[in-house]
Design a protein around this nucleic acid. Structure first.
Lengths: 125, 125
DNA sequence: CAGGATCCTATCCGATACTG
DNA sequence: CAGTATCGGATAGGATCCTG
């Protein structure tokens, strides 16, 4: 049934086709804006981190959700994963070029949000 | 157990306190990046829309989720709501100043995502 | 038209236990 | 250390019906 892009009229405003359920972009957006994906991307923005570092820097995330989220982000090409075959193993995650490009507007988003909040909650920066 | 901000060291990098579960900013972020909140904000970015226009522009959203999402965004001060007491009633939604500030990085985010996707899925723009 | 109320299902996600 | 597997409760969210 659904297959093409449905833009009602030719002269329709440049409304985003991303809105369609079967759109690939929408999946990526959903992953980026997923409950934990957001924080993973933000955490990795400045530097690469190991699994346990990520877990500790993102409050409230469980190991399950962290690995699950990471797996998706790696699949989407936003995050790279490097395994050091030592004992015990060391796995490091970092942002790809794509991930960094995404992280920038994300940071902008959060900065603007925090700036609009009551003073008592504002970060010290 | 957890109550304050845990920044391991004094000279720690400016890691976001937003990561804490009890942070107000986190709630707003969760709303903005919620499954449907994203699309509502993007939809309203260029101009205000009525309820049914929103429902039609965001594919796959149910009336329930749309009204629920809108309610939260209005509470957060991102969206305004205007009721025209006619019969049948007309309710219009639009972005507040805050909402517009948030919408900008959001659009940037989606533009970058769509630009990185395979050509066959790319919007025509 | 713009929703609220209800019901019901899918999934999210945390806790726990186990593996290389 | 860095996960995977499984279970079960909580929540998101769709469908339907109803109202001002």
């Amino acid at each position: 049934m659904d297959e093409g892009v449905q833009v009602t009229a030719a002269e329709a405003p440049p409304r985003y086709e991303v809105f369609h359920t079967d759109c690939l972009a929408r999946n990526v957006v959903d992953h980026v804006t997923s409950r934990w994906g957001v924080w993973v991307l933000i955490s990795l923005r400045t530097n690469a981190l190991r699994f346990y570092e990520l877990r500790e820097s993102i409050h409230g995330i469980s190991e399950k959700m962290l690995s699950q989220t990471l797996r998706v982000l790696v699949q989407d090409g936003l995050v790279w994963r490097e395994v050091e075959p030592t004992v015990p193993p060391q796995v490091t995650y970092g942002l790809t070029e794509f991930g960094r490009e995404i992280g920038e507007p994300l940071r902008e988003l959060f900065d603007r949000i925090t700036q609009h909040l009551p003073a008592e909650f504002k970060p010290t920066r």
